[in-house]
C-alpha cells in the first residue's frame, strides 16, 4: 500500500516536473522559433552577412560583459533587491586592476591571477558595503547601490586622474582578444572561440548550478519568495542577502577584468549604462523584479536575445536612435507577456 502511494507519487512528481519544465520549454521553444524566422529573414536582407560564424562569434563576445553582470544581478533580483552599482564597479575594478598590474614586477599567468584577485577583493568589498545598510537597517537597495554607483564612478575617475590607465603588461592579451582552437576552427571559417566568451559560459554554468543545486541557492529563492517565512525557518537571512550583493560585486570585477583586457586599459567610463542593460537582460529572461523567481540560464538567454537584436539592427543599418526604441519596446513586451502568461495560463 505504502509502496503504491510512493510509486504513484513518484510518477506524478515526474509528471509535475515535466509540466513545470514544459512552461520553460514552451517559452524557450517560442523564442528559438521566433529567432529562427527572424534569422532567416535577416540573413536574406543582409545579403548573408548575419549567418556567418564570424558574426555570431562577435555577438557572443559583445554580450559577454553585460551577461556576466547579469548573472550576479539575477541573484540580487531573486531576493527582491536590485544592484545599480555594477556598471561603475566595472570601471573602479578596471582602474584598480590596471594600476596594480602596472605596479608589480612579475608578469605572465601569475599576474593575471593576482590581478583578478585584487579586482575581486574590490568588487566583493563594494558589494558588502552595498549590503550592510540593506541588511542592518532594512534600507532599500535601490538607494544604497545608487550611492555606490556614484561613489565607485567618482573614485575610478579620481584614481585614474580622469584618464584610462593603459596596461603595460601583455599578459592580458589572451583573455582580452585571444581565441581558443583558432587553428582547428579556421577550416570552418571560424576565428576560434574567444577566451572571454569561455569565461562567460563557465560562469553561467557555475552559477546556474549554485542557484539551482545548492542550499545557498534555495535560500535565495526562499528569501525572495517570503522573507519572514525564511527567517522563521532559521535561515540566516542577513548573511544570504549579503552574499548576493557580494556575488554581484564579484561578477562586476570579472567583467571589469575582461573589459580591461579587451581595451588594454582600465578606463573610468566603460561601464556607463551597463547596470541597466544587465537588469534588462534579467527581466527579458523572465526573472521577476518582485523576487522569488528566476534563472541564470534564462538571464543568459535574455542577454543573448538583446545582443542578437542589436546585431541584427546594426546589420540592417538601422540608426541607433531607432535601435533604442526597438530595444525599449522589446523589454516592455517581455515583461507584459510574462505577466499575462502568469495570469491566464498558470492559474
Amino acid at each position: 500500500m505504502a509502496h503504491d502511494v510512493q510509486a504513484a507519487l513518484e510518477a506524478s512528481s515526474d509528471a509535475a516536473r515535466a509540466k513545470a519544465n514544459r512552461g520553460l520549454v514552451i517559452r524557450t521553444g517560442a523564442v528559438v522559433l521566433g529567432l529562427l524566422i527572424v534569422v532567416v529573414a535577416v540573413n536574406g536582407f543582409s545579403h548573408g552577412t548575419f549567418l556567418t560564424p564570424g558574426n555570431l562569434t562577435n555577438v557572443l563576445r559583445q554580450i559577454t560583459y553585460v551577461a556576466i553582470l547579469a548573472i550576479g544581478q539575477t541573484f540580487v533580483i531573486i531576493t527582491a533587491g536590485i544592484d545599480l552599482s555594477v556598471g561603475s564597479l566595472i570601471e573602479l575594478t578596471g582602474v584598480v586592476m590596471a594600476q596594480f598590474a602596472n605596479a608589480v614586477s612579475f608578469g605572465g599567468f601569475p599576474l593575471v591571477v593576482a590581478t583578478l584577485f585584487v579586482g575581486l577583493a574590490v568588487g566583493c568589498f563594494a558589494g558588502f558595503i552595498n549590503a550592510v545598510p540593506v541588511v542592518k537597517l532594512n534600507l532599500p537597495p535601490f538607494i544604497t547601490t545608487l550611492a555606490m554607483m556614484l561613489m565607485a564612478r567618482g573614485l575610478a575617475f579620481k584614481l585614474g586622474h580622469g584618464q584610462p590607465v593603459p596596461l603595460r603588461s601583455d599578459a592580458f592579451e589572451n583573455i582580452g582578444i585571444g581565441f581558443l582552437l583558432g587553428g582547428q576552427l579556421s577550416l570552418l571559417g571560424l576565428p576560434g572561440i574567444p577566451i572571454a566568451v569561455l569565461w562567460m559560459v563557465g560562469l553561467v554554468a557555475v552559477f546556474a548550478v549554485v542557484l539551482t543545486r545548492t542550499r545557498f541557492g534555495r535560500y535565495v529563492f526562499a528569501i525572495g519568495g517570503n522573507e519572514e517565512a525564511a527567517r522563521l525557518a532559521g535561515i540566516n537571512v542577513g548573511l544570504v542577502k549579503t552574499m548576493v550583493y557580494v556575488i554581484s560585486g564579484g561578477c562586476a570585477a570579472i567583467s571589469g577584468l575582461l573589459l580591461m583586457a579587451r581595451f588594454g586599459s582600465g578606463s573610468p567610463n566603460t561601464g556607463i549604462g551597463f547596470e541597466l542593460q544587465s537588469i534588462a537582460a534579467v527581466v527579458v529572461g523572465g526573472t521577476s523584479l518582485m523576487g522569488g523567481r528566476g534563472s541564470v540560464i534564462a538571464t543568459f538567454l535574455g542577454a543573448l536575445l538583446i545582443g542578437l537584436l542589436n546585431n541584427v539592427m546594426n546589420l540592417l543599418q538601422i540608426e541607433s536612435y531607432t535601435q533604442d526604441i526597438v530595444l525599449g519596446a522589446v523589454i516592455l513586451l517581455a515583461v507584459v507577456t510574462d505577466e499575462l502568461r502568469k495570469r491566464y495560463l498558470v492559474r
Binding site: 542550499r215 519568495g225 517570503n226 517565512a229
Partner: peptide, 25 residues
C-alpha cells in the same frame, strides 16, 4: 510558507542542512 515554492522545497526548508552535502542539496 513560501507560496511560490514547491511542496518539497517548503517541507525541507527549515532543515535543509540535513538534506545537503558540501552545500549541495
Amino acid at each position: 510558507l513560501v507560496l511560490g515554492m514547491t511542496v518539497r522545497e517548503n517541507v525541507t526548508l527549515a532543515h535543509l542542512d540535513a538534506y545537503s552535502q558540501y552545500g549541495f542539496v
